[in-house]
Design a binder for these strands. Structure first.
Lengths: 268, 268
DNA sequence: CCATATTTGTCCGTATGTATT
DNA sequence: GAATACATACGGACAAATATG
């Protein structure tokens, strides 16, 4: 019954094996960031392959953010510091195709930013707190400016918070999801309706979130952040979808009353 | 003070523009999965570039999991269904260079799978419940088999749960993080110590999670799932890191007592 | 500052094994 | 089985870019 299972042979191309070896060398630390790989001609000698093969391998490694080569550089391709950019790009690709519902996206964002606020409150350093306060100050200062400028300042605040969460994955994913949310929302709605009140209340809400973070009260910070996001984005989805969002908020942490704010957002 | 900022010019190479256009076509849905791209010769005519350039572009697209080309295929490179594999590889690369700590990964996984359990309990259909029950049955059946087989069956259960959560992002990210944790753990530890008891308790715990999902009790399902993950993985991190994990569990939802289980895991 | 050598980016041609008709 | 079109891999070539003396 338990017969040996064989796997279908798929040809391993030459450039792939070059990629493997170089990637191994980089990830294992044998080739450190800042150092240089041998030139293409030298690589083609070492691997005993043609230059085209070496080049294909280098292009793949470059697209993975591992190396970078400049024309005419006698030093050869430089090894880059490990970055999260390729991860972001992968996720953006997924998000742009996977016919992601706005609700799914908002659910995910509420989840992430709630966790981000919680972790930031619990684990922040004083320096990180200072950065968040500075970002919030900038946000207040740009209340009378363009909506795009305001959005930019808002992003900075959220990023400072994510930074303080001290969790790379939460930080990266939240950043990506913020970007995608912004794209989807600005794509769907012109969003020029009387933003002054909204901006002001947005600032006040973020201020209270920051207060909770200052007091290292993670539960409150998370709840406030989740509620802010919900209130802000709820008008963009149907009432049934709003219910889905509220469910997650309850499940993601202790619920705060949202009914009082609901009335002002649902008739938008 | 606010001076115009310019960005440094970086030369855009020919193959990059080919990648851009093809990627655009795929992500926008103009080229659907299963369909074929023009052959290399035709591409080099359409883009008015050389063969090498086309090939470099195709290798990059292939490494991103977007297309696949076989030698001798007259149909040309095939457009692949969008997959989360490249995302997983990016994350694995990050994790393999210590820029992702195991704690961050576990925090993130506890967050995601907690939300997954909650959403599955709240929004599941009967059909999805059936699949989860089937997966749990398989898990019980493979308790006496290899650890890898057991792990495989466990993955199936988690995936069925994520599927029922009806949130694509949660599903994909959870899947990726599961894969990465598995790699990291199996890479670090031989993990052959008396697994029988652990497997049995693991099955019992998952059974109670599924019970909560059956009753549509999201809060309980989430708490149980988070606790199970914590108890299972806590031995792999230091006590200080365990504290970080516990913090998130409290912040991610109503806490259940974990002290009774802690004693058995910390002395492992 | 200039000249030279080296390297990369890109192109072209060719031989070989493969998949489809 | 044969013919055709294809991808893989190789090698050579030239212009632009870079670093060094």
């Amino acid at each position: 019954m338990n017969q040996v299972q064989f796997e279908p042979i798929k040809p391993v191309r030459a450039y792939e094996r070059v990629v493997e070896q170089v990637e191994m060398a980089i990830l294992s630390g044998k080739a450190r960031p800042g150092e240089h790989l041998p030139s293409e001609r030298e690589l083609m000698a070492q691997f005993a392959v043609s230059r085209s093969t070496v080049r294909e391998a280098l292009r793949v490694l470059e697209s993975h953010g591992l190396v970078q080569s400049r024309p005419g550089d006698p030093n050869g391709p430089i090894v880059l510091p490990i970055s999260s950019v390729p991860l972001q790009k992968s996720m953006t690709r997924l998000a742009s195709t996977q016919s992601l519902t706005l609700v799914e996206l908002l659910q995910f964002r509420i989840l992430l930013e709630g966790a981000s606020a919680f972790l930031a409150a619990e684990q922040r350093t004083d320096e990180q707190l200072a950065k968040m306060e500075s970002a919030l100050k900038d946000l207040s200062g740009s209340a009378d400016k363009t909506l795009t400028e305001f959005s930019q300042a808002d992003l900075a605040f959220h990023e400072a918070m994510a930074e303080a969460s001290q969790n790379t994955l939460v930080k990266i994913c939240a950043q990506v999801v913020r970007g995608v949310t912004l794209e989807l929302i600005t794509g769907k709605v012109a969003r020029s309706e009387a933003p002054d009140d909204l901006m002001q209340s947005w600032i006040e809400r973020h201020t209270s979130v920051l207060d909770a973070i200052r007091k290292k009260d993670g539960l409150t910070a998370a709840s406030l952040m989740r509620r802010d996001l919900y209130d802000y984005y709820a008008p963009y989805v149907t009432e049934e979808e709003q219910q889905r969002l509220r469910r997650l908020m309850e499940g993601a942490g202790p619920a705060l009353p949202v009914a009082d704010l609901l009335s002002q957002t649902t008739n938008g």
